[in-house]
Simulated assay, not measured.
Amino acid sequence: MSHNPWHVAVVIPARNEEALLPRCLKSVLEACALLPVSVTTDVVVACDTSTDLTFEIAKKILAEHGTVLTTEAGAVGHARSLATRMALRRYSGQLRRCWLANTDADCCVPRSWLVDQLLFADQGIETVAGIVDVDSFEEHDIGVGVRFRKSYLIHEDGSHPHVHGANLGIRGDVYLRSGGWKGLTTAEDHDLWDRLLKTAARRTSTNAVKVLTSGRRVGRAPHGFADALAAHNEVSA
């Protein structure tokens, strides 16, 4: 195992997220600060077809800690791909020591989020799929929170069947070998995860890496997590 220090790049797509982006970036910067001093960090936000102050807020909060770019693609997969490409361009070291940590602008990550991922990376794991929980169910019917958590399967050993672009880590060289993010409007995370399997990447799905995501009823990506959560409103209590 190499003892060269890690570089961690956090990649975040954002579309009209002026309300929730400050929470996200604050939590990401706190997670970066908890890493060992030998670990270098970068944060890249891809502002996709935003008409609010998402870009300006990201620039102000990140300052020297990262960068913000814009795209008019209107596809989360393209935004992730563009941001990742920029993150890799800004890094000059060995790709096998570059860890790409993906989340979403409406998420809040715990302080140990990056430390926990690097624990797996140090064991030779090349990609990590974590889990999500919801911050509030106030936009939903009574009982949706209970139904969501009952249906959100986690096995006794902590493994699970979920894949969220909001909580997915991958080593830089493995990311490129898999072909990276495709410019999809939805399910770009499952697409990448499936291709990682085909390239024999060392994958793990674990509840040891968790992020908090918004419980909004209408999301940014069609047929994404918000739609899946909203579907619980249609189930009889």
Rank of each mutant, 00 (worst) to 15 (best):
C98N: 07
C98D: 07
C98P: 04
W99E: 00
W99A: 04
L100Q: 02
L100K: 01
L100E: 00
A101Y: 02
A101N: 01
N102Q: 13
N102W: 07
T103I: 06
D104M: 06
D104T: 10
D106L: 05
D106Y: 01
D106C: 09
C108M: 12
V109R: 02
V109P: 03
P110T: 05
P110I: 03
P110Y: 02
R111E: 10
S112C: 12
S112E: 11
S112Y: 11
S112K: 09
W113L: 00
L114H: 06
L114V: 04
L114C: 02
L114K: 01
V115L: 08
V115K: 07
D116R: 01
Q117P: 11
Q117N: 12
L119I: 13
L119K: 15
F120T: 01
F120D: 00
F120H: 04
A121H: 03
A121T: 05
D122Q: 14
D122T: 09
D122I: 06
D122A: 14
Q123A: 14
Q123L: 14
I125S: 06
E126W: 03
E126F: 05
E126G: 01
V128Y: 00
V128K: 01
A129T: 09
A129D: 03
A129F: 12
A129Y: 02
G130M: 03
G130Y: 01
G130L: 07
G130A: 03
V132N: 07
V132W: 00
V132T: 10
V134F: 05
V134G: 01
V134I: 14
D135A: 15
S136M: 11
F137M: 09
F137E: 01
E138R: 13
E138N: 15
E139C: 08
E139T: 06
E139H: 12
E139P: 03
E139L: 11
H140W: 09
H140V: 08
H140T: 11
H140L: 12
H140K: 11
H140G: 13
D141I: 13
D141L: 15
I142C: 15
I142K: 15
I142Q: 14
G143L: 07
G143Q: 06
V144F: 00
V144R: 05
V144N: 07
G145R: 07
V146Y: 14
R147G: 10
R147C: 13
R147T: 11
